[in-house]
């Protein structure tokens, strides 16, 4: 038995003339929480669709728990659970009915389904809303119901495609706690995210995807070390950003940077110090800027 829950080699996928994945390689150790970090359009969802058998790759191979995603689709389906980018709940049914339906479709009997649904409703703090239709649920409740559904059949590999996009801070925290608890069950979690903070908080290992390739892989600490400790921002009197410069975060390095910059900016320039953002990771790892506002910034600094 292989020690990797997910193994991907040389994966290519194009839609029409647009190449989305361009030779992607990846291995995820069993039992890990693995985050795939990247901007919109980097190929995150396409990769999840290939790994969950929804889309066939053009070239390359991918194996889940040792099963090939093209040749052994049914074995793969038995090994995975997918929580897509949009909460996949039936809005016309209540939370409890959603769970019971999915229990039945996972091969549980009617009686087993009742017990398992009640268990999951309790675990995900949805008991009070169990009898309400899912269309009345808040974003956070839908995500929790979605995640509860994913855990019905205790599949060894769980895919979460941008699990917290669109959630407020409190719901995001609550969902993070629930995802972290999955580790106790020994489930391998493969999640995609646009937020460095989310990857940092949850993942044992992080891979950064850009332009259809993995551009960096490692623990959160390793990646942050490549970006620098703190970023100094220079703003003019009208609060317009003049430049942002990464530093190691040590007092000496900050002082040195400020000295180097002295006299370069007009009277009234103010500074701020912040943690590295997703964009900073990208600048450091790829030299690319993820949106046009940052290009302006790059031109100045």
């Amino acid at each position: 038995m292989t020690a990797f829950a997910i193994e991907v080699s040389g994966l290519h996928k194009s839609f029409g003339k647009t190449a989305v994945l361009k030779g992607l390689d990846l291995s995820v150790p069993a039992g890990a929480i693995f985050a795939l970090l990247g901007p919109n359009g980097a190929g995150k969802t396409t990769l999840i669709h290939i790994l969950s058998t929804l889309v066939a790759p053009d070239e390359g191979a991918a194996r889940i728990a040792g099963h090939d995603v093209v040749r052994a689709r049914n074995e793969v389906k038995r090994s995975i659970s997918l929580t897509g980018q949009f909460a996949a709940v039936d809005e016309m049914l209540t939370g409890e009915e959603n769970l019971r339906m999915m229990c039945r479709l996972s091969g549980l009997s009617g009686a087993e389904s009742r017990v398992r649904s009640a268990e999951l409703l309790r675990q995900f703090e949805l008991e009070a809303a169990a009898g309400k239709r899912a269309r009345t649920y808040s974003g956070g409740m839908r995500r929790r119901l979605d995640l509860a559904i994913s855990l019905i059949a205790s599949r060894p590999v769980l895919f979460l495609d941008e699990p917290t996009t669109g959630l407020d801070t409190i719901s995001r925290r609550a969902l993070w706690d629930m995802i972290l608890r999955l580790k106790e069950h020994g489930i391998t979690v493969f999640l995609t995210t646009q937020y460095l903070e989310e990857a940092d908080e949850l993942a044992d290992r992080i891979a950064v995807i850009n332009g259809g390739r993995i551009v960096a892989e490692g623990t959160a600490e390793e990646l942050k070390a490549r970006v620098g400790g703190e970023v100094i921002e220079f703003r003019d009197a009208a609060d317009e950003l003049l430049a942002s410069i990464p530093t190691s975060g040590s007092a000496a390095d900050v002082r040195k940077t400020l000295n180097e910059m002295a006299g370069l900016f007009p009277e009234g320039t103010r500074i701020g110090i912040r943690k590295p953002s997703m964009d900073d990771v990208f600048v450091a790892l790829t030299g690319n800027y993820t949106n046009s506002a940052d290009k302006k910034e790059a031109a100045i600094s």
């Binding site: 038995m1 292989t2 829950a5 069993a30 039992g31 728990a65 040792g66 074995e75 038995r78 090994s79 996972s106 091969g107 059949a153 205790s154 599949r155 060894p156 580790k183 106790e184 069950h185 020994g186 489930i187 391998t188």
Partner: peptide, 11 residues
């Protein structure tokens, strides 16, 4: 921590 890699669920 126990690591599960084999599927147990039935269809």
């Amino acid at each position: 921590m126990k690591t599960a890699l084999t599927a147990t669920a039935k269809s």
